[in-house]
Design a protein around this nucleic acid. Structure first.
Lengths: 344, 344
DNA sequence: CCTCCTTGGGAAAGCGCTTACCGAGACGGT
DNA sequence: ACCGTCTCGGTAAGCGCTTTCCCAAGGAGG
């Protein structure tokens, strides 16, 4: 990096000292620079296109305006919605967001939190379902603790069991509500495209759904619970698998919208036209998917708001921490799960 | 930030000097540290959970491993796809991505490039259609020039007229190909949901489409070209507007997929069932929307690859710059534009 | 036995900025 | 007229790290 203009240059050009130049430029607290000198400094800075070195400032000040954000995959609309919320709120507070995708690589989060720690990020936000991998969780917890010990603030989203402020999406209750709603529509025989068995988010949704059926009456045979990846292709494959088992089922719950869309495609490829041949429901209410046809019944999670909330939580000097903030989902019934005609 | 462990602490604990500790940790070039001392230093670092201060390193080395990425809206699947490509490639090169959303605020890009410049980012990538706002473009150009003058490398995506390496999506040719393909399917009377008139990307697509019709025969009345925002709701509104004009049209081209989906929703709300009542095509081939029903005819743009390419371009020490890299789109015909039965 | 090289550790000079501290001048109160 | 006080500019001490330069010790060659 050559040729960059430093504060020194500005000071020289304005004919003042470094201190005065610095004070003039960032209006240092409880120190006023005379109008004329300030004018001169600002002019010199503008003429030289001076741009302060953020690292030097970080060093001198001992902190930065960086938010570190770790998520699984920015191309996944679930995460990009959360990221949008984080960025919006960060922008409002003059913070810059540094983002890293784990691509679901185990241990990646720990690495990235380490990187954010090296950058003296003031805030770190970790979003994405924890797995049941105990060792990885412990390592991440340790790294986050080290980060907070150094004065940073961390917030976890969908990651319980971490020793920091946490935003917890109520998957269990949401799935339960969904199960009840589907039951009320007349459905009794269900299947579940369950997602990865090691992902807490997925298993919670399955558990909540199952509980609703148990409570209100409804059948969910073990062989109608098909695991698979949390993706569109995962939903597609799981649905095929399910159909191969030729199930006696009227409604399928895919544990997220992206999978539900894949599942619908699988149904069509088998000549089954949803929702006529099969009702289907998802989870998340991904904005981009609100116009699929038939409209997808789902549980709305305020993803963008969750991202914004994470930033606010980090910036808010709460008294006692870690805090846990629960966010509820809301069932949205659409055309993909029509009311079942009463059995004759 | 208190309590953070510094290299000094590590050196003291290992009983060596700062210099030796530094050399031991990053295997300094052409200087070897004795096996035993190195061992001691590494152990001390691990025991103390030492994490080097990235800013201090940046200062001392005069460069960073940061990629600055400016885009319009990370929640938009178009941008999140590009971002995913950038992050994948950045990760592969050990770079960290700092991202900023302009929310289409004019001038925001310039501000963000300034922020990246302050951070001594080694690479800056600016993605998103330039508008016809000449002044804003000039300012951005100037800021990018300053950034490169300081040794940084900038790449623009979809932003012609900037004095840096540019990846240019061939909107014109893509739309032209699409127009021809639709013509071959038998369509003759078209409408276009044109997006924002000041957005180059949108106008290029409209122009290419129009040119194909002119060349091969096909009608596109001026009042059947409806402008509007580049979003789902923009597509919805534009389609309503179009329907209100009661057009004699068999096929609508929405200049991006997100708008096309909104347009389909508008059709349905008016009791028109695509593609029966009206064929519809989009542009981009957004992955999340590949399963909408009916399948959306579109022009595939390799968005993720473009993001990755941008990073590679920045890292590649090209001889002569700025270079322009054109990326072509590919027409993908799906069910939303069925072949029109020949007129009897 | 002396000189010259090689090996490897340490001291210290920055990198660009902020900020405590210092000091000079102006001003008003007594 | 003197002193306390206030205003405002400058000096310099870091922030944590890298890297150049110096130097000591040991070995090889004459």
């Amino acid at each position: 990096m050559t040729g960059s203009v430093t504060l020194h240059d500005v000071a020289r050009r304005a004919g003042v000292s470094l201190a005065t130049a610095s004070r003039a430029l960032n209006g240092s607290a409880n120190r006023v620079v005379g109008e004329e000198l300030r004018e001169r400094v600002l002019r010199a800075a503008a003429e030289l296109r001076y741009s302060p070195n953020a690292h030097a400032q970080a060093m001198a000040r001992g902190r930065t305006n960086i938010v570190g954000l770790s998520l699984h995959d920015i191309a996944d609309p679930y995460f990009s919605a959360v990221a949008a919320g984080v960025m919006r709120e960060a922008e409002a507070h003059g913070l810059l967001v540094t983002m890293a995708s784990t691509e679901r690589r185990p241990g990646a989060e720990t690495d990235y939190v380490g990187a954010f720690r090296r950058h003296w990020a003031s805030v770190v936000i970790v979003v994405g379902s924890r797995t049941d991998d105990r060792a990885a969780t412990d390592q991440l917890a340790e790294e986050l603790a080290a980060f907070e010990a150094e004065g940073g603030r961390a917030v976890a989203v969908s990651q319980p069991r971490l020793p920091v402020d946490t935003i917890s999406i109520d998957n269990h209750a949401g799935a339960q509500d969904l199960g009840r709603a589907l039951h009320e529509l007349g459905h009794r025989r269900f299947a579940v495209l369950a997602g990865p068995t090691e992902l807490l988010t997925a298993t919670e949704r399955v558990a909540g759904f199952r509980e609703a059926l148990t409570r209100h009456g409804g059948r969910l045979d073990p062989e109608h619970v098909v695991p698979g990846p949390f993706t569109r292709d995962g939903g597609y494959a799981a649905m095929r698998e399910l159909l191969d088992r030729d199930p006696d089922v009227s409604c399928v719950f895919a544990v997220n919208d992206v999978m539900a869309v894949g599942a619908m495609a699988a149904l069509r490829d088998r000549g089954i036209d949803p929702p006529t041949g099969m009702a289907i429901a998802g989870f998340d209410d991904i904005a981009t998917l609100r116009d699929v046809n038939p409209g997808l019944t789902t549980v709305r999670i305020p993803l963008e708001e969750i991202g914004a909330l994470a930033v606010r939580l980090a910036l808010d000097d709460g008294v006692e921490r870690p805090r846990v903030h629960r966010v509820a989902g809301e069932v949205v019934l659409r055309a993909s799960t029509p009311r079942l005609p009463p059995p004759r």
